[in-house]
Design a binder for these strands. Structure first.
Lengths: 79, 79
DNA sequence: CTCATATACCCTTTAAAGAGGGTAAATATA
DNA sequence: TATATTTACCCTCTTTAAAGGGTATATGAG
């Protein structure tokens, strides 16, 4: 616990009814990684975090003063 | 490039006028880490990513169907 | 076109994340 | 209360992210 990220993960996992081990297997990461994530470890790998969040149906996005400008240019760049 | 995260970082760094090296020094990470981040590497450490984003004034948040429920309970838990 | 700067990548070393196995303690369930 | 399950940590081994240095190429300013 202690960090907001940890609380978010724990909260969503509890709501999903999964155990740490089940979540880790679905996400394809080690059981210890899920445990550490829920206990405030920040030095986890981003790709592993994203795998866990995907299973829990959580998605990340960003906020910044440049957000709107970025999104406009970014969607243009893709077309 | 190639990933959205990479584009976000690059976009914000360019707007800040910083070089990769300056950004890396301000963030307290290696220059190669910034380079790799901007080139789509996903296996970076979360804490390092957050340091870089902090310098660029970008913040992360999450979206999920449980978001509102979580935020309500989370803010209660802190008081 | 020149010269300076930034970026793209190479290499090596080191620290630590991650995986998986184990077990005591905590928690839930019958 | 007894029992099953889950969580909290321990340990070891392997893998790899990260740092820092180096250099060729690309980019930009004068």
């Amino acid at each position: 616990m202690q960090s907001e990220l940890a609380s978010i993960i724990l909260f969503h996992r509890k709501h999903s009814g999964l155990t740490q081990q089940e979540l880790s297997e679905l996400a394809g990461v080690g059981k210890n990684m899920v445990y550490e994530l829920e206990n405030g470890k920040k030095s986890v790998r981003l790709d592993n975090l994203l795998k866990v969040m995907q299973v829990l149906n959580i998605e990340l996005d960003f906020q910044s003063p440049l957000r709107e400008t970025f999104l406009k240019e970014y969607s243009d760049a893709k077309c």
